[in-house]
Nucleic acid binder design. Structure first.
Length: 577
RNA sequence: CGGGUUGUGGCGCAGCUUGGUCAGCGCGCUCGCUUUGGGAGCGAGAUGUCGCGGGUUCGAAUCCCGCCAACCCGACCA
């Protein structure tokens, strides 16, 4: 393959786009890989399409060698299957729906669990047909409230989704393991430094769930690692170690007048000033903060729910929603309408609504909390004695330095990442919904269990750009660079002709080649563009052409070496992906 | 969904306060000549429904109303 810059649909921008913030977005636009075409929708220009296709090829290769079979479903689907699985409502506003000319409801699919399940139901009937692993590349649609970051979060994006169907739990776990390994190979091959973290499965439903996060400052996911063990988790999935049971030796509950203390800070200050309970060492962590939220279950009436967390912590709404999924939660503030709930002075004792507590609010722990009367708080409020939560919930914010639940020794560190892959065991959620049964070897019906495995392909382009750039531009990993070598004709005197000739030679030897043969463009411009575009190797055909020498530049290391023209293919090939 | 900021040639911006040679600048683009190893020089050009709709006015990029879009922030605590 040989591309000539003089004819390539490419326009690099000298100046920054005004509204591009994140590095990948800025650079991909400036270097001429993508262009915005719609809110949350991007056109892949020739260079961008080449990268996308190379990533696609890597994924396809690994999926096939993991035993996958490729199919392709429509993106435009009727409502019924999603009605059956309940996702028409559960997916909420994120689902991009439309009506056809007859008024019938359709959707532009956000993922394709339903269609894969129906296909397998349609085409299998016997245990002999299993196990099955299917995958596709497909444009997915989500009606994002706020697309951002260019390719990082769009309303339309390319995704590889795969689904495994097994008749045994062991088979399903094995499929999960194979896909997990395949994903590691994919991300390693395309040059993404990634961490596998425990996750929640969200609106897709399911149990065991892990995310592949590419570390990047602009990532929307926060994940934790452990200083001692190799535990890693999305903050949404972090579990809080339950403190050792405390003997219930606390003195009886006592109510105090605590005027003007609607906030934890004011309460702690007053408690110390007045030596509440004979102490002057109260801290926010001794208090129990009770937050009321309105929970919206899809297709059901909203419910009021109180959440109890130690007073030194905020409620993390993302963690809360993950814990309540598929329901969504909003902070409740209509206290005028609920006289039972005294804003700023809520306590769990005798509360009339459902009450879920942080795991730290373990039986036997004693708290300073609201007395459910204006201007009054209670001390020695003991969990399990003075109140019993309706359950525990992981909704409190996670902080660096929190103890690790996995090993019990280390503490948590926090980083940000881009979700580039998500794998989870779906179980029978969809095979149940569609009543998929096949005949087992014993003649009895068996219901397949599923796994679901997704990779954001277009997002991966941006993730790679986030991880591989410098102040001059992009620095593509060799395995997915749009081409292997960028030949720059630096000057005059037949250098363009020589560059094209060299390009043709390299191309015949199987390399992907881009030749900057633009006439009347100065060498400086060509060098700057080459660095912006970020091809791993550049070959400069320039002033020593007469001696048969050209310069090879490594984009990443900036290293320059002069080599005889005849050796170029060998040197490039040694490093090409 | 809320808040903030912004919409003026392909890109980046000025002009708006105080309505009337305000349709302007830089980059890019076209043509010619020169130049050619680090975003070249000179000369000559082309490109605008000033986001959209309505209103005020003799006259609107500029003032008023409505809408749309983009970007950023927040999805905020007892």
């Amino acid at each position: 393959m040989l591309l000539r810059m003089s004819t390539l649909l490419l326009k690099t921008l000298r100046e920054e786009l005004a509204d591009a913030e994140v590095p990948s977005h800025r650079l991909l636009v400036r270097a001429g890989f993508i262009r915005r075409a719609a809110p949350g929708g991007y056109t892949m220009l020739p260079l961008g399409k080449l990268v996308l296709d190379r990533i696609t090829a890597v994924i396809q290769e690994e999926m096939l060698s993991a035993g996958g079979q490729e199919v392709s479903f429509p993106a435009l689907l009727p409502r019924e299957p999603y009605e059956t699985s309940n996702r028409w409502t559960e997916y909420g506003d994120l689902l991009l729906t439309l009506k056809d000319r007859r008024g019938a409801d359709h959707l532009l699919a956000p993922t394709h669990e339903e269609m894969f399940t129906l296909l397998v139901q349609d085409m299998t009937g016997s245990y002999r047909d299993y196990p099955i692993l299917l995958f596709q590349f497909q444009t997915k649609f989500r009606d994002e409230a706020r697309p951002r970051g260019g390719l990082l979060r769009g309303r339309e994006f390319l995704m590889k989704d795969a689904y495994s169907f097994d008749l045994s739990e062991a088979g399903s776990i094995a499929a999960y393991g194979r896909m997990r390994a395949a994903y590691q190979r994919v991300f390693t091959r395309i040059g993404l430094e990634h961490t596998i973290v425990s996750a929640t499965s969200g609106a897709m439903g399911g149990s065991a769930s892990e995310e592949f996060l590419a570390a990047a400052e602009v990532g929307e996911d926060t994940f934790v690692g452990c200083t001692v063990c190799d535990h890693a988790a999305n903050t949404e999935a972090v579990t809080t170690p339950v403190p050792a049971p405390v003997l219930a030796t606390a003195p009886p509950l006592e109510v105090h007048d605590t005027p003007d203390t609607p906030t934890i800070a004011a309460l702690v200050e007053l408690a110390n000033n007045r030596r509440l309970g004979g102490r002057d060492d109260w801290t926010a962590a001794d208090t129990l903060k009770n937050v009321v939220v309105t929970v919206d279950h899809p297709g059901r009436d909203p419910e009021l729910l109180a959440i109890g967390v130690p007073g030194d912590r905020e409620v993390d709404m993302k963690r809360l929603e993950a814990a309540l999924s598929p329901a969504t939660a909003t902070l409740f503030d209509d206290f005028a309408a609920s006289p039972d709930l005294v804003k700023g002075y809520i306590g769990p004792q005798g509360i009339k609504i459902r009450y879920l507590a942080d795991p730290r609010v373990a039986p036997g722990t004693s708290w300073l909390t609201g007395a459910n009367e204006p201007g009054r708080h209670a001390t020695n409020v003991v969990a399990g004695r003075d109140f019993t939560p309706d359950g525990t919930i992981e909704a409190a914010e996670v902080r660096a330095g929190d103890p690790c639940a996995a090993c019990g020794e280390g503490t948590l560190t926090m980083r940000r990442g881009i979700e580039i892959g998500h794998i989870f065991q779906l179980g029978r959620r969809y095979t149940d919904a569609f009543k998929v049964d096949v005949l087992g070897s014993d003649g009895k019906p068996v219901r397949p269990t599923m796994g679901s495995y997704g990779i954001g392909v277009s997002r991966a382009v941006a993730a790679v750009a986030e991880q591989h750039h410098d102040d001059r531009g992009l620095v593509w990993p060799a395995a997915i660079a749009p081409v292997d070598v960028h030949i720059v004709a630096a000057g005059k005197d037949g250098q363009v002709e020589a560059a094209l000739e060299l390009g043709a030679t390299l191309s015949r030897s199987g390399l992907r080649v881009l030749v900057d043969d633009r006439p009347n463009v100065s060498a400086g411009v060509k060098f700057t563009d080459a660095e912006l575009i970020g091809i791993p190797k550049a070959v400069v055909v320039g002033r020593r052409l007469g001696e048969g020498l050209v310069e090879i530049r490594d984009r990443k290391t900036q290293e320059r070496t002069e080599v005889p023209m005849v050796d170029v293919a060998g040197v490039i090939r040694a490093d090409a992906g």
